[in-house]
Write a protein that binds this DNA or RNA. Structure first.
Ligand SMILES: [Mn+2]
Ligand SMILES: [Mn+2]
Ligand SMILES: [Zn+2]
Ligand SMILES: [Zn+2]
Lengths: 159, 159
DNA sequence: CACTCTATCTGCACATGATGCGAACACGCA
DNA sequence: TGCGTGTTCGCATCATGTGCAGATAGAGTG
């Protein structure tokens, strides 16, 4: 998604208003690679703006998504994840702490696919499920951290 | 998943009981390629067995899944989908009627992937999103049908 | 067949994520 | 400063699932 300043201009030019709540969410989402849930954003926002409504967070996320500034994903862990990275990419999800990281897949266009007869495809998502480095070390890790990229390139096989 | 007869034997041999409710669900799920939701199964089951509880349907689905007889998928349409096809395969989902069809992808193991550093992968799911043949013809189709495979091989590009 | 031990079924409460609604509020502009 | 419409917020409501406990009924045993 675009920068907070760019979004503010775009909003005003579209007749939409630039409220403090929206500006805060613009900042919280910009360059945010954690794929946060609405609730996580609400928690962060509440620290800087006590009294902000969860309803407003949902509303703003829905608006930004329909404007194409955000992507939303459901990885089956209960809550929708929002992603300011609207470029084409894929994801890996930790089965233990539910951390989500971006994955870039090359040459995916060459896949030999059977079963799409009759369908007009406009989007393809690949989701890798596994265990992150931190959870591998600490079997019972729970709290996901903002970001962290570690070593040990364990590229699992692709069924 | 295995046939109703095989499942009945397996259940009894494991000390589990073979109830009419379970037998009905065995039949409803066997060779079922529609990727039904718990609610859809409950609707079907209720016709043949009025009074069956939705709770029992959920319970049985959970049991069969943890026994490896079913796979469950969440395509982000609100309800979990259950799949008696436990072999390795992928899916295409209609954005309009939410119909789900199986997709078989070859050579997926050769993908050039960046971003999995630190993760130990044990499963990879590819989901194609698009519009099915029926919804392409009837712009406002709603009710998904059991199965149907049509022509016009529109293999969309893979981002 | 009758008995007994348990697994199972069912109804209801509860949890969670998300949306619908309307009155109070405030951004943006004259 | 005042106005009008878009926003915010709180609360009700919906949807999918799960926890719980008493009633029910498989399936061996005598
Ligand atoms: Mn991403
Ligand atoms: Mn399938
Ligand atoms: Zn983890
Ligand atoms: Zn369709």
């Amino acid at each position: 998604m675009r920068s907070p300043a760019e979004l503010s201009s775009a909003f005003r030019e579209s007749g939409l208003k630039v409220t403090p709540q929206r500006q805060l969410l613009f900042r919280l989402l910009h360059d945010n690679a954690t794929h946060p849930t609405a609730d996580a954003l609400y928690a962060s926002a509440s620290q800087q703006m006590p009294g902000i409504s969860l309803r407003t967070v949902y509303q703003t996320l829905t608006d930004l998504t329909s404007m194409g500034e955000l992507q939303s994903f459901d990885f089956g862990n209960g809550a929708t994840r929002f992603d300011p990275n609207v470029g084409s990419h894929h994801h890996v999800v930790c089965r233990s702490c539910h951390e989500v990281a971006d994955v870039y897949v090359d040459a995916a266009a060459d896949l030999d696919v059977a079963g799409l007869e009759g369908f007009t495809i406009d989007r393809s998502d690949i989701v890798f499920h596994g265990v992150c480095a931190r959870c591998s070390a600490t079997p019972h890790a729970t709290t996901p951290q903002p970001t962290s990229q570690t070593n040990s390139p364990t590229t699992g096989d692709m069924p």
